[in-house]
């Protein structure tokens, strides 16, 4: 059996491997190459060396987008995880209607980002208009908090499910033992439950952090970067560099922004994974 598996393993791996190479590896390498080129379409690239990268750092809008993205990612990651964990705690207590609540909280995640963006744009504009405040397209603060509310609403349910899975995998014997030893519920949460769900925390932090950094659809639909690029996240900034400028040189600059963006996300994700992994405990 083992031998047969070994013999045929290439056959089983091939479809996935091919899909990975065609769909990910090849475009990625091409993208890397194009970031050093001046091009209009991918077929007529002319090598220009590092000049695209030099222009990226001369472009103030990229720095602004970066700062806005960091501010957004930090706050939304914290809020989403704290709220999702709280919900998970509440919904593992066996209160009535637990399943219904879980379903309801999970549902926003099933709606596409563009649709959500437009729905929230209407909602938030409605509120702002009633309060006689400047609407979203003129209001950086509203755009920022709008994005955070939107992302919380969309992602909390998803993260909640992961936390619930983590909480349910804690053996009852552990919490029981802690109770018998006289720990109160607060202590059980901090000293027993939280260390035990660290794997879930790792995953959730990773997902929310990278999602926040890569956010595009919701940003495009909710604010479109208005007013005047003030609420533009990195991904939208790259898109605008690519398509809103004239002249072939901008495609290359957009591409090198994308490469820098990729490196940034990878570094942040790795640092985060390493730091939370080290806190995971073995059962």
């Amino acid at each position: 059996m083992e031998k047969a598996l070994k013999k045929y393993s290439p056959v089983f791996i091939l479809p996935t491997l091919a899909a990975f190479i065609i769909g990910f590896l090849y475009p990625f390498c091409q993208g890397l190459y194009l970031s050093f080129c001046k091009f209009t379409t991918v077929r007529d690239a002319a090598w220009v060396g590092l000049s695209n990268y030099a222009k990226v750092f001369a472009d103030a809008s990229f720095g602004n987008a970066f700062r806005f993205t960091v501010a957004f990612a930090v706050v939304s990651t914290l809020l989403i995880n704290v709220l999702a964990f709280t919900l998970a705690l509440v919904l593992t207590r066996g209160i009535r209607g637990t399943n219904a609540f879980r379903t309801v909280f999970f549902m926003p995640n099933l709606i596409g980002g563009i649709v959500l963006g437009y729905i929230w744009q209407i909602l938030i504009n409605g509120v702002l208009s009633n309060l006689a405040k400047p609407l979203l397209a003129l209001n950086t603060a509203a755009g920022y908090w709008g994005l955070i509310i939107l992302m919380c609403w969309q992602q909390i349910g998803y993260m909640m499910i992961i936390y619930i899975a983590g909480l349910q995998s804690i053996p009852g014997a552990l919490t029981e033992a802690a109770e018998i030893d006289g720990a109160n519920s607060w202590q059980i949460l901090w000293k027993v439950k939280l260390p035990m769900v660290m794997p879930a925390v790792t995953i959730c932090l990773f997902l929310t952090l990278t999602n926040s950094f890569k956010l595009f659809d919701q940003n495009l639909a909710l604010t479109g970067g208005e007013p005047n690029h003030a609420t533009e996240l990195l991904a939208l900034n790259i898109y605008n560099t690519f398509y809103a400028r004239s002249g072939p040189q901008w495609k290359g600059i957009g591409q090198s922004k994308a490469v820098i963006f990729f490196i940034l996300v990878v570094v942040i994700a790795l640092v985060q994974l390493r730091s939370t992994r080290s806190r995971e405990v073995q059962q």
């Binding site: 995998s169 794997p199 995953i203 073995q282 059962q283």
Partner: peptide
Amino acid sequence: KNRWLSLGL
């Protein structure tokens, strides 16, 4: 159990 959880995730 934990391994399976992280695998699935």
